[in-house]
Design a binder for these strands. Structure first.
Lengths: 209, 209
DNA sequence: CAAATATACTTAACACTGTTAAGTTGCCAA
DNA sequence: TTGGCAACTTAACAGTGTTAAGTATATTTG
């Protein structure tokens, strides 16, 4: 089956091209400037060809959102070498913020836009693998911290959600311009870092006498 | 000037009609289903008439976003009767979550969509009054709590941002369906409440011995 | 090898979107 | 009565996602 094999590879290659073009477009020009026609222009095919490789636009956005999670993991390389769960948690937060601010369009897709979740609802019947894996790592760290008596005890799920929500809140408010008119531009990142530091210090049991 | 006066009132009335129609549309059918033409249909005018009363679509969305802040304040009636700043803070958080989940489309406009902020940037040169006022109330409460030795000390601005970010994170992840596949539907609200409770307990100095 | 079929891609169109320029009413003041 | 102005509409532009139908080219089959 040498021929069908090569065909498969060609098909995968064009899928790649479409994703690459979409990525380029929405990193360069922002989310709302990505259109099927612009993608088609970039890969020099007709717009309808794209529908031979993806069911619809949401399908492309879903794939990109998964690439986003891959990219995010790169930020966390070496994270598990940190043995102290509290320190690891702190670093996770820092990486999360750094990733969000450096890749606002990916972040948007992963945690703000509705499109990818609609695909999850339709296709992958009842699972959001990428999100589940990422949240799992947070939960593990929180649990470890509690077990070792390093951080304030509480329901692991609720506490993990609270921490995730806080960093997500910081990043999403920042990239949706809600800090712009409340905090001087150059003070935004320091303020975010300070907020994270405060949280980590507040839950740190070792700081209490 | 009786005539020009009545004219003014008529003009204001049509503005109202447009805003009411937009509100109805985006509360009933969701944000992305609001179009100039649908608004026009609802008020039985031609689409272009709307441009005689609002500069563009963003202008309408900005006005709606301000109405959202008004509506939010209604949730906080009687809040300042609570003398204990920690209790008040807790209630503020509960109200914030309740408002967000009950009025997702308004919340979207106020804290997620970019459109209203773009209007702020263009017109109101360099202020986001609604946001500033709301954040101000939070800051006052946090400061009062710190002054009275009821909550963990820290930079008032950063701590306020941290708290706002956490509740915003909870609400925005919820209304953008990020909890749906991670937590059973009926467990979402309890989990959010639990997360808020945990935060308040964690910063409560009176609980420490 | 020729005919039938399957593959890859395009053209044209539909039903939308926000927005603008130009045209049409009807009312008010001179 | 007429000029001008205000309120409103029609028609159009340039864009969007998406689908049905058509056209080559390549592959398989008789």
């Amino acid at each position: 089956m040498g021929i069908t094999d090569r065909k498969e590879k060609q098909k995968a290659e064009i899928r790649r091209m479409i994703l690459d073009a979409s990525m380029k477009l929405f990193v360069d020009q922002g989310f709302e400037n990505v259109s099927i026609r612009k993608i088609a222009d970039l890969i020099e095919y007709s717009p309808t060809t794209i529908y031979l490789y993806f069911k619809d636009k949401d399908d492309i956005l879903f794939s990109l959102h998964e690439l986003g999670f891959q990219k995010m993991q790169e930020y966390n390389e070496g994270l598990w070498d940190i043995k102290n769960p509290l320190l690891r948690l702190h670093k996770m937060g820092e990486n999360y913020i750094r990733f969000g601010l450096s890749n606002p369009e990916f972040y948007d897709l992963m945690f703000i836009q509705r499109a990818p979740m609609q695909k999850v609802e339709q296709i992958d019947n009842c699972e959001w693998k990428s999100g589940d894996v990422a949240l799992g790592r947070l939960k593990d760290t929180v649990r470890e911290g509690m077990d070792k008596g390093l951080i304030v005890k509480g329901d692991v799920d609720a506490v993990s959600m609270a921490i995730w929500s806080m960093v997500h809140g910081l990043v999403s408010l920042a990239i949706r311009d809600r800090f712009d008119k409340l905090v001087p531009q150059e003070a935004i990142l320091p303020m975010m870092t300070q907020a994270l530091n405060w949280l980590v210090e507040t839950i740190d049991l070792t700081l209490r006498k």
